[in-house]
């Protein structure tokens, strides 16, 4: 049963100093996230959603409390080890896709394999397979500027998938997309979760998106509550 827990979070707090004022983004958050969960995180702007996601991804360190990913205590790891954790276990998807504009779709997927030291041919094969899984193999040699928003987000999903991560952290992945494209992207994520068992944590303002998750978290003023 213990092995099924991917994230274990205890009394996690995060404060920032903003204009000489202390701002608390997260307050004493305690929760466990199981492998294979598809969790949506909702809440008002500035409530702490993105901060929680960055903590889960090892991009930020907590002010207090503990957070472990697959038995790695993230709050104790140095920058080099955190980078290693991100390279191997975490896939990110951003609202603005964050693709490298000068690289093709294939190369944008391949850059996720660079930290893993995978050889060029193997890297190409895996990147093409990832693009295939998001139905974009025919656009492998297109640059981001030659792709629609939905296609760019699918490239970003392929980039997150290609390294077979433990978890995908998606920060409003459908925020810039129309409804039809939004549904396609969510379908894709749901299928990945069901078929590959990848844990997905998704920040969204969209209730229709949140409904597709099997767990819902709500964050307001840094306090996390669970909704069924």
């Amino acid at each position: 049963m213990t092995n099924n827990i991917l994230y274990s979070i205890k009394d996690l707090s995060k404060s920032f100093s903003q204009s000489n004022k202390k701002v608390t983004a997260l307050r004493n958050v305690t929760l466990d996230i199981n492998r294979g969960d598809f969790i949506s995180i909702q809440g008002p702007t500035g409530g702490g959603k993105s901060t929680l996601l960055q903590m889960l991804g090892g991009l930020e360190k907590p002010t207090s409390g503990m957070i472990s990913l697959d038995q790695d205590d993230l709050e104790k790891l140095g920058e080099a080890k955190l980078t290693n954790v991100r390279a191997k276990k975490v896939g990110f998807i951003f609202q603005n896709y964050n693709l490298i504009p000068t690289l093709t779709a294939l190369e944008n997927v391949q850059i996720a394999l660079v930290p893993l030291g995978i050889k060029k041919l193997e890297s190409e094969r895996r990147a093409l397979a990832a693009l295939e899984s998001v139905a974009l193999s025919d656009r492998a040699n297109h640059f981001p500027s030659e792709l629609s928003g939905g296609q760019q987000q699918r490239v970003a999903i392929a980039r997150a998938l290609v390294k077979n991560p433990e978890v995908i952290l998606a920060d409003e992945p459908t925020g810039n997309l129309d409804e039809e494209t939004r549904d396609q992207i969510i379908d894709l994520l749901v299928n990945l979760n069901k078929e590959s068992g990848i844990t997905i944590m998704l920040v969204t303002h969209d209730s229709n998106v949140a409904k597709r998750a099997n767990k819902n978290l709500h964050i307001s003023n840094g306090v996390v509550t669970t909704r069924s």
């Binding site: 920058e79 980078t83 850059i111 980039r159």
Partner: peptide, 10 residues
């Protein structure tokens, strides 16, 4: 920022 997030070392 993205490269660092996906695991590129500094």
């Amino acid at each position: 920022g993205t490269l660092k997030a996906i695991g590129w070392k500094t």
